[in-house]
Design a protein around this nucleic acid. Structure first.
Lengths: 262, 262
DNA sequence: GAGGCATACTCGTATAGACGAGTAGCTGTG
DNA sequence: CACAGCTACTCGTCTATACGAGTATGCCTC
């Protein structure tokens, strides 16, 4: 049946203690690293690998699943297993909230994406009042209720980020911040118009594997972690006026920060 | 044989399209989320799950492997599968390189860890001259060779971080920077003594799944991503004097940054 | 009591087989 | 030519079985 997968893959070492499926994964990984299989290229099919290595199909699948969990490959039902292409990366600069970037009619995300030649979209926008989770509440000075603004960001049709902004209700209710479209310059511009001149942002960065929900909403393939970023915005009086909880597809982002040496 | 795994887990829905092993994973995940299985607790054994759900062992293993890749559980050969405990987290503040933290005889890592009540260790220290990789080289202004300082950091015996510092050879050769122990205040103190007053740091943060090598050196369990942090230090003349490439176990870190609102 | 061994449990690795479901290309019909 | 359907390939799910290897426990011997 299946043809040999060319001479790219070698043979197994029967004397090795290393499990057969790990050896197979090692070989394919090395071939990918050496560029024998390029980005987006199709790997040999399971049946070809079965034939080439003389093992059972579960052993081959086991090997392939290692590569998938490492983020090196991804399978497509009915088509094959492919070397995972590295998508274009969005760079978040630490000055992205600077006032000078805030005078446009569009959101920072839109402006920046268009500058990079991508088609930006914002999705599943939802604004509502709710009772905040404990950690959010603590950051905002324990308000009873908050305004939550949820939205998803897409780049060229691919979802890359899901964000929820929380604002103390006494501050946001009845203002344009509570509208789906917060107007030019976004909610930060509105906050400043309301007299809350922004002073600084605190950001907390974490990385972890996504929950099943996050896999779905960000359409993540296996082996892709998420970056969780929690930003708190403070006004010049030291009051926390917004907490933004963002989950980003880790393969789509680099965060860039600039620190003074003091 | 195996006893029932108590009444914590329900039954499968045979009418659902959802694959059986996914349903099993869903049930266990939910039980974990609801605290029915606590951190570090042992999950029902494979044979118990086989009996409870009336499926084959591979199906159960498949379900458990989902939870492992989500970072929720981890298996221990011969012992069982356990709810993965969340280890204590090290918080990296954005002022951690401020000069005022630099006057002690110990490294920043040591001081901070002891303050947090942990036992810090530094490991596999290695200093050598080498030809830099292209991306490192570019950041340092393309020196032909660099001094590389490699080391691994451990907290209470657990490896949490692996870092390599690269410095232009013309700057570091023959100085205490090229010694295994760079002296009080670390290499940043030495750089300033050499007339390179530090001005700012640029940090780039990424997250991804670890390579097999990283899994080994950081003793990562499956489902734990790494945070990759590349820091470039600039002196007041705008020269890049050091690039530090750090790989951190993502479950052991939170990065905290403070951004001015401009 | 200390040491060693047997045992019964755990998960790890591997085989062989079956059927389902998605994809793509070819082919034959209208 | 357009389209429907067949076919051959892909990966997805699941069963049943076997043996290996690590761990914990208790018992038995010395």
């Amino acid at each position: 049946m299946a043809a040999l997968p060319s001479g790219i893959l070698g043979a197994l070492d029967p004397t090795s203690d290393r499990a057969v499926f790990r050896q197979i994964a090692d070989q394919i990984r090395e071939a990918i690293d050496r560029g024998r299989f390029k980005e987006g290229a199709k790997l040999p099919s399971e049946s070809e690998l079965v034939e080439h290595f003389g093992v059972s199909r579960m052993t081959v699948r086991n090997a392939l699943s290692i590569l998938q969990s490492e983020g090196l490959a991804s399978s497509e039902h009915g088509r094959g297993v492919f070397v995972r292409p590295r998508p274009p990366v969005r760079r978040l600069a630490s000055d992205r909230f600077a006032r000078r970037h805030r005078d446009q009619g569009k959101s920072a995300f839109t402006v920046e994406a268009e500058a990079a030649g991508s088609k930006p979209e914002v999705d599943s926008l939802e604004v509502r009042e709710e009772k905040p989770a404990p950690d959010i509440s603590a950051r905002l000075g324990s308000p009873r209720k908050v305004l939550a603004r949820r939205r998803r960001y897409l780049l060229d049709g691919r979802p890359v980020e899901f964000a929820v902004s929380y604002l103390p209700l006494d501050l946001a209710r009845g203002t344009q911040i509570a509208e789906p479209n917060p107007g030019p310059g976004g909610i930060y511009a509105r906050l400043e118009e309301l007299g809350h001149r922004l002073d600084r942002f605190d950001e907390e960065v974490r990385a972890r594997m996504p929950s099943p929900t996050e896999v779905k909403t960000l359409r993540l393939s296996s082996g892709v972690p998420v970056i969780s970023l929690i930003r708190t915005a403070y006004d010049t009086e030291g009051r926390a006026v917004e907490v933004c909880d963002t989950v980003m597809a880790a393969d789509a982002y680099v965060l860039a920060y600039q620190l003074p040496a003091n």
